[in-house]
Design a protein around this nucleic acid. Structure first.
Lengths: 120, 120
DNA sequence: TTATTATATGAATAAATGCTCATATATTCA
DNA sequence: TGAATATATGAGCATTTATTCATATAATAA
């Protein structure tokens, strides 16, 4: 992921005008790295399954673990990432922590993604 | 990524009915792994930048490399993945290979993603 | 208090991933 | 033909990442 590119393309390029034009368009587009991060967050089977489960029903951590047939620890680690991305919210009830979709934010993210890739 | 879960959740779970209900809903939802793969493909800055550039203009490989300030090799490797996901198409012209967005397929993917995560 | 239960988290590990380097495959041109 | 150009690709490497294991934190119950 983070091999920094040090040197510029050495190849004699075919069409400098096209490159310049594209570069101007690229500058205009704001945060492509942030956009990639959004997709990266959704690009994991476990996280997608968790989101799907939470779409169906509010669940505590050990319920999610049972549904996915995974350890509590693995689920908890992924929930932390989803929390960080504000894709899920939670409430405490005694010892249990109940997670649910943060619907508005999920929708916002999708709209952003759609908008970006479809028209710039 | 591929640490297979061997044993089932050992914790005494809080609500078996909720788990059963959720499991029925999960079964109904088809290909969550495929859905995650779609997002994974879009979850990389280089690939997002390539798609953005190709949204703006049809470009040959060395043009893309110049725009992104990356090596031809790095770009070519990513183009291979994008080709495999049918997010881009290409045509040959002499020595050059011109890439462009496979718009219909990009749109289809987004619609699928949206549909899946938003309602099931 | 102590024991139990539910969750969170740091460290370690294995697998995946993106890039570089070298090289192979076309294609064009002299 | 041989040289130059454009692209593709395999191997190797470093980084990232998802999981496991052990343990910490917090809440409840005895």
């Amino acid at each position: 992921m983070t091999h920094k590119t040090h040197d510029t393309c050495q190849i004699k390029c075919i069409n400098p005008e096209r490159i310049a034009r594209t570069l101007r368009g690229m500058d205009a587009s704001s945060d492509l790295a942030g956009l990639a991060d959004i997709f990266k967050m959704l690009g994991d089977v476990t996280r997608v399954r968790i989101l799907k489960a939470l779409f169906l029903e509010e669940l505590c951590v050990c319920d999610i673990a049972a549904v996915l047939e995974m350890t509590q620890s693995a689920v908890s680690h992924q929930l932390r990432l989803l929390r960080g991305a504000r894709l899920v919210k939670y409430r405490k009830e005694g010892k249990a922590v109940y997670y649910s979709l943060d619907d508005d934010h999920v929708k916002t993210l999708f709209d952003q993604g759609l908008e970006h890739v479809q028209q710039g």
